[in-house]
Design a binder for these strands. Structure first.
Lengths: 197, 197
DNA sequence: CCAATTCACATACGCAACGTATGTAGGCAC
DNA sequence: GTGCCTACATACGTTGCGTATGTGAATTGG
């Protein structure tokens, strides 16, 4: 073994993030006992405080990890579409659908903002917003979207998506509600499409 | 004094709600100590547990109160507009602006959803969503809005508004960001306007 | 190759806050 | 006027966070 030290450190960090992520995603941030989920990782709170400072520090690390995963997924989806507009719509719909996953919903859309405040001032700038912004920017450059402020549009869409996801996830009939929400969402996006003269 | 008993009870309930509302709105739900803000109301936690069961029960009561206030404000605004579409837009913009008020933002859009879950399954069905829905329904009936599911539209707009408000409130330059957001929001709504054939 | 140091992590302690179980005083019925 | 019910207060146990301190293993310098 060349660098057992750094490897071990990275491993413990990863274990803490994984265990915390699971706890936050299931019982929520407030309901997650540090003693419990650090023990589940075969460690103690001492390790957590050493690496992340406090509970919110771990939450930030977890969010950063999830955000990175979401960003790559979104990029892949928009790249796979036949044309730019379609890619944009697919990306937005995928965003809603990702927000349906309980872990993402709970950590990224409920506890995250409640504990750390608005996404825009999180230390790790949100990759998903950036991905959306890039797509919008390209669409505007290509004349496919009406003139609208890029970041504002990204944030409005982000907000609409996350709320839609919450609505769907808590619905009695998620499939039907999902169709309802996605349909309306497509209409909303269609309204932003540049009208051909 | 005719009914000192019921009056006193209503008064203590009101005092607890007021004190809790203030604490939740300033230091947040988690940061609000029940001992502290019940004492500030001249009471103890005993009264709170008696009337509201637990901390979340008080939060629900506070939310119900704020929601009622917001609903009347929104109704007044949409009624004051020169025409229906304008009234709708005004209502939406007002919704954003209300979400800028720290107390509303914190309680209704951050801590509320985090603690109680999605608005749609709160015991007290959200009056603001209902108000928005009514406006949308009328617009559709009058042929002023494209065919879109009412509730879905209301929720998407609600989500976009609350996120916009969060963004503005946490901005370094709130006035500029507000213009940015409201402009984009108007564009978004404009996309939902029925095209005259 | 060994000693000193550093660092990753564990242990121990204090404190704050929630929830519950119990106590009490004052109004209402009869 | 007496007894009960209820609105609230008091007292207690538990839990969980944050900090201060301890320890052993890995690294570095000679």
């Amino acid at each position: 073994m060349r660098k057992p030290r750094e490897e071990m450190i990275a491993e413990t960090r990863a274990k803490l993030i994984a265990s915390g992520r699971h706890a936050f995603g299931t019982v929520g941030y407030a309901g997650a006992s540090m003693d419990d989920f650090t023990a589940a990782a075969g460690l103690t709170r001492g390790a957590l405080y050493h690496h992340f400072g406090d509970k919110t520090g771990l939450l930030q690390a977890v969010i950063q990890q999830i955000d990175a995963e979401m960003t790559t997924r979104l990029n892949r989806i928009s790249a796979a579409a036949p044309n730019r507009w379609q890619g944009f719509v697919d990306e937005c719909v995928a965003y809603i659908e990702m927000a349906l996953e309980p872990e993402i919903q709970r950590i990224m859309f409920r506890d995250g903002p409640a504990v750390l405040g608005d996404v825009s001032q999180w230390p790790t700038s949100n990759g998903c917003i950036a991905a959306l912004s890039r797509s919008i920017e390209r669409l505007k450059a290509d004349g496919l979207m009406v003139d609208i402020d890029t970041e504002a549009a990204a944030r409005l869409i982000n907000g609409a998506s996350s709320h839609a996801a919450l609505w769907i996830a808590n619905s009695q009939t998620p499939e039907a509600t999902s169709r309802q929400a996605v349909d309306a969402f497509r209409r909303l996006l269609d309204g932003l499409r540049a009208r051909v003269a």
